[in-house]
């Protein structure tokens, strides 16, 4: 087990290097020169040169890339070009807001998706199953933006059930701001989750052990909830755990429309402003989280299914 973990951690190094290289290349190709962006409309050539020197942009691309790798290795991303705030402070301040929205929405999204998937699998081939699948496809075909605009207009403005937008650092008041975006999150994700989970469950339904259980005369309900569900949990686990890093780094659209000061909106601002230190911090964190959670998924396999052994 330990050898497996160490080996996976070592694999992470070239992966992270590759991601850094891609981000650095993309930023230098299409990101624009931050000095022009920062100094604004009155910038003179001298000021631009001075600022480029100050930011280290006058160094060769190779040197700049190694500076970037150094900041990734030390997790010291410095200050934002735009806000001049410490990036670590920005992340610590934005993370609770992103998580306040993401955690409840994600839990409900997964549990509800799984419950419906099991239900439709139980009634597979019936009108109910087909109707749910059609609804899921319809739900997936509608843009998330449409759900946001509709939800904000109907439930917040027209019916007055929720605030239109906003966020409060006070937990008691925060709840009312998070409710509507969380519900929209669940609705947006439900279609795809039900379809994916239904596939996982139906894959198991056709296995030999299910036929054996049926031959032994066990009820369909018992087969589904006792045997099939346990075995379907492995792909479900992969699917769920790998999404966790995205939760932490925030939802761009929901945060922007609902005025939630999370990491998603910080990232969007950074892209708009060519704020490379923030972009590299966010991408690095997301990559690291992906790798950590991918490893965690593999480790969890052995917990869910004792037949799986880490080598």
């Amino acid at each position: 087990m330990m050898a497996f973990v160490i080996r996976r951690l070592l694999y992470a190094i070239p992966t992270l290097f590759g991601v850094c290289l891609i981000i650095f290349t993309l930023f230098n190709l299409v990101g624009g020169d931050p000095a022009y962006q920062m100094l604004g409309k009155h910038a003179t050539e001298t000021q631009i040169l001075e600022l480029r020197r100050e930011l280290g942009l006058d160094k060769s691309k190779v040197e700049q890339f190694f500076d970037y790798l150094k900041s990734v290795a030390t997790l010291d991303f410095g200050r934002s070009y735009t806000t001049k705030q410490q990036i670590t402070d920005m992340i610590w301040r934005g993370m609770p807001a992103s998580l306040s929205l993401a955690i409840p929405a994600f839990i409900v999204e997964i549990l509800l998706g799984l419950a419906i998937a099991l239900l439709v699998s139980f009634y597979r081939g019936t009108f109910f199953d087909r109707a749910v699948v059609v609804l899921c496809v319809m739900g997936m075909s509608v843009s998330a933006l449409a759900y946001i605009l509709f939800g904000q207009y109907v439930f917040a403005y027209w019916l007055g059930l929720f605030p239109i937008s906003g966020y409060d650092t006070d937990i008691l008041y925060r709840f009312k701001y998070i409710a509507l975006p969380a519900i929209i999150w669940v609705v947006v994700s439900l279609g795809i989750n039900v379809r994916v989970f239904r596939t996982f469950v139906l894959d198991e339904v056709n296995q030999d052990y299910v036929r054996t259980a049926r031959a032994k005369g066990q009820s369909e309900k018992k087969i589904l909830f006792h045997h099939v569900l346990k075995n379907a949990l492995i792909p479900v686990l992969t699917y769920v755990v790998i999404q966790i890093p995205v939760l932490i780094t925030g939802s761009f659209l929901l945060e922007n429309f609902f005025g939630i000061p999370g990491l998603g909106s910080i990232t969007i601002d950074a892209i708009h402003n060519s704020d490379f230190p923030v972009i590299k911090a966010m991408t690095t964190i997301e990559t690291l989280l992906f790798m950590v959670f991918a490893l965690a998924t593999d480790l969890l396999y052995s917990v869910v299914d004792p037949r799986v052994r880490m080598r």
Partner: peptide
């Protein structure tokens, strides 16, 4: 192009 890129292209 993006706003930063447009700024760069004009400045250069």
């Amino acid at each position: 192009v993006s706003w930063p890129e447009l700024n760069s292209r004009i400045a250069k």
